[in-house]
């Protein structure tokens, strides 16, 4: 896809009377980081970039939008937010629409076909101690990386984020304008979850005990999740106190089970939680397990249809009930 097309489209979106500002990516100030860009005047669209380094989800910023205090003031301001959305972001938006978390009229979605993002940890391991902002482009299955004036070519497979390899919807499923070609949808596969399920109970327990011991309870996974937008969170509730503040295996386990279960039938698999986790917990393993169950038990694929009903709010007489005594 061409960056000029994105800039033109962004300028056109900002030219509309009803669009307040645009959320996109801009060049970061350090190493392989990119920053979110909030663009108001349309002359600033030149800041926008779209590269394999753009690995963060911008949907969270839509949910963090603060409403003006009074309705009259709200009416004075144009209401729409334009957002640059990749495949996974568009699914998150779809789910928010499904849950009525955000109204469709509030969004102007510029869809971008995405061929996968780079894993920050992998590229930083490959090129350590890079302080100057680097540039990366993709060409014929390779990443062309420009670090400190030196150009490196690295095969895409080596740096691509693991979750992007499993991505099923590289093309946005909802958009007002699409930039780039439509890429084919990939089939449903959860092989690594199946393999883990096949392990004996004790081994699974030992694996998760070891993982949850590492958790420092920074709640970054919750804060970054585009779908965790409740204003009252059970993790912070004191009456009743569902879990204690102490960081130990039992509380961490409780925290992760609560967090995962709140995403049951909702998680769209963007992998933000895993990306920001400072302790490298395999959180997507839990999320993907529930996504797999939602698909296999209920035939529900989260975030693919904005008109669908949220899974856990619906009941059908054909739903499996074998767990009831």
């Amino acid at each position: 896809m061409s960056i000029q097309k994105l800039k033109d489209e962004a300028a056109r979106a900002l030219g509309r009377k009803d669009v307040k500002y645009l959320i996109g990516y801009k060049k970061g100030s350090y190493g392989f980081r990119v920053s979110p860009a909030f663009i108001e005047p349309k002359e600033d669209v030149d800041q926008l970039i779209m590269s394999p380094l753009c690995n963060m989800s911008l949907v969270k910023y839509v949910m963090m939008e603060e409403a003006l205090p009074s309705l009259t003031e709200q009416a004075k301001k144009p209401s729409k937010i334009a957002i640059v959305a990749r495949g996974c972001d568009s699914r998150a938006i779809n789910l928010l629409l499904e849950e009525k978390g955000v109204p469709r009229e509030k969004l102007y979605i510029i869809g971008v076909s995405c061929t996968g993002a780079i894993d920050q940890r992998k590229i930083e391991a490959r090129f350590p101690q890079v302080t100057e902002p680097a540039e990366v482009t993709e060409e014929n299955g390779n990443y062309i990386i420009n670090v400190n004036g030196q150009v490196h070519t690295v095969p895409k497979e080596e740096l691509l984020a693991d979750l992007c390899k499993l991505c099923r919807y590289p093309t946005p499923v909802i958009y007002d304008k699409l930039i780039g070609d439509k890429l084919p949808t990939k089939p449903f596969h959860y092989d690594e979850i199946k393999a883990f399920e096949a392990l004996p109970l004790e081994e699974r327990l030992a694996f998760w005990q070891q993982q949850f011991t590492k958790c420092v309870r920074c709640y970054a996974c919750r804060n970054v999740c585009p779908l965790c937008y409740s204003t009252i969170c059970s993790l912070e509730s004191l009456t009743p106190q569902w879990l204690r503040r102490s960081v130990d295996t039992s509380e961490n386990f409780m925290f992760q089970i609560i967090r995962t279960f709140h995403l049951a039938g909702r998680c769209i698999g963007c992998g933000e939680c895993e990306r920001v986790c400072p302790m490298n917990l395999p959180l997507m393993k839990l999320n993907r397990k529930l996504a797999q169950d939602a698909k296999l038990l209920f035939g529900y694929d989260s975030g693919t249809d904005p008109k669908a009903k949220p899974l856990l709010t619906t009941f059908h007489s054909e739903d499996p009930q074998d767990f009831i005594l």
């Binding site: 883990f196 399920e197 109970l201 004790e202 081994e203 699974r204 327990l205 030992a206 694996f207 998760w208 005990q209 386990f253 089970i257 995962t260 279960f261 049951a264 039938g265 839990l286 397990k289 529930l290 169950d293 939602a294 038990l297 856990l312 767990f323 009831i324 005594l325």
Partner: peptide, 21 residues
């Protein structure tokens, strides 16, 4: 689904049971 999740994380699923009475 919770039962499946607990089973996945190594808890015996027999510990969580549900019934309508």
């Amino acid at each position: 689904m919770l039962r499946k999740l607990l089973e996945f994380s190594g808890i015996n699923p027999q510990r969580l049971q549900m019934s309508w009475v």
